[in-house]
């Protein structure tokens, strides 16, 4: 099912949780809504589900205006952050609930419900646990029951709110892979919310990066990591440092001095670069500062460098240096970014 979100605005007591958000989701796509808390990602998910209603704007499921329908009518599968399993119902009763509450005209017969439940348990690899209560399951098992329950109603789209948030690191990794396979098998249009960029980048076809009620960038993992389109995306995804610079006659100047890199048009702005996109150099035109800390990170080292700022608090940057480079605590390091982006002020 294709989902179209048109100019959605959502206010809570005059506070705009979402401000003019538009997004097209293709059928069968796996989309991550990524952002810090308060960015509006969960609000957007709840609006798609019909758990909240937009102040302005529309949401289309295919050709149908979903904003005309209540949550019950939208037929979406929603997996809640804390799963929201019905604790007085067994696993089987939980999964069958959505079928049981249908009006008698469209409700499948008991035997059919039973079969559907058992198929779903197979699919989420929980066969044999149908008579357990949620309380008797592990976190990962509850997760999968919640997913099976959402799938039981044959939803048009599947929505997951922080699906791995409440799990420990190891289970989280396993379930992540499993969810990707599950998605590839069932082909449902799926949207999930996360604040964990690793999760979003690894799992999703496209990542929607959100901040302060707006979409900052939509793109593949490579797009948002390698071609960030805003200072927020650059600093939110991966590690990065930034410095105020000017561009004059094609040369990038920091504190009025050329630093050995060039840019097209003249402007003033912020120079962003990642720790790994840096080379050490002996040349005069370069950034330089004092190494204040040095730590080992897997096969390389990260040097923390303070760049003097005319008596103000120094600029703090992090660069990745080869293991045996002559970078010592307290010494001066000179470097140039090899890949960077300048965001105009």
């Amino acid at each position: 099912m294709e989902v179209k979100i048109n100019n959605i605005r959502k206010e809570f007591d005059r506070f705009a949780a979402l401000n003019d958000v538009s997004l097209n989701i293709a059928s069968g796509e796996l989309i991550a809504l990524l952002g810090p808390s308060g960015s509006g990602k969960t609000t957007l998910l709840r609006l798609i589900a019909g758990l909240d209603f937009p102040t302005a704007g529309q949401i289309f499921f295919g050709e149908e205006d979903a904003s005309r329908h209540s949550v019950q009518e939208r037929n979406v599968g929603f997996v809640f952050q804390h799963y929201a399993l019905f604790r007085h119902m067994t696993v089987a009763q939980n999964i069958g609930f959505g079928l049981k509450v249908r009006p008698s005209a469209s409700r499948p017969p008991k035997s059919e419900i039973k079969k559907r439940v058992s198929d779903l348990l197979d699919m989420v690899q929980l066969s044999g646990l149908e008579n357990r209560y949620p309380n008797q399951l592990s976190g990962g098992q509850r997760q999968r029951v919640a997913l099976a329950r959402a799938m039981a109603i044959e939803p048009r789209i599947l929505l997951l709110d922080e699906p791995f948030g409440a799990l420990d690191a190891k289970v989280r990794k396993e379930l992540r892979r499993w969810l990707r396979e599950f998605h590839d098998r069932t082909g449902h249009t799926t949207v999930f919310v996360t604040h964990d960029q690793e999760e979003a980048l690894e799992l999703a076809d496209r990542v929607v990066v959100m901040s302060q009620g707006k979409i900052e960038q939509v793109g593949s993992a490579d797009d948002v990591y390698d071609r960030p389109q805003s200072p927020f995306v650059f600093s939110f995804i991966g590690e990065s440092s930034h410095l105020p610079v000017e561009v004059k006659d094609g040369a990038v100047l920091f504190q009025g001095q050329p630093i050995g890199i060039s840019e097209g048009a003249d402007a003033a702005g912020d120079l962003f670069f990642r720790p790994e996109d840096v080379v050490l150099t002996d040349e005069k035109d370069a950034l330089f500062g004092k190494v204040t800390a040095c730590r080992r990170l897997a096969g390389t080292r990260i040097a923390e460098i303070d760049i003097a700022n005319n008596g103000h608090d120094p600029f703090h940057v992090e660069v990745e240096v080869p293991l045996h480079a002559p970078v010592e605590l307290g010494s001066e390091a000179r470097f140039r970014p090899t890949r960077w982006k300048i965001f105009r002020k």
């Binding site: 929603f78 804390h82 929201a84 399993l85 019905f86 604790r87 007085h88 249908r102 329950r149």
Partner: peptide, 29 residues
């Protein structure tokens, strides 16, 4: 009671009456 539980029932198609009598009250038994 976690509001999520009631919302979960609603996303699964339960109306308010069904949510109260099939989900909330049994949990309070």
């Amino acid at each position: 009671i976690d509001k999520e539980v009631e919302e979960a029932a609603a996303t699964l198609g339960a109306n308010r009456f069904q949510t109260i009598f099939n989900v909330l009250l049994p949990g309070l038994t």
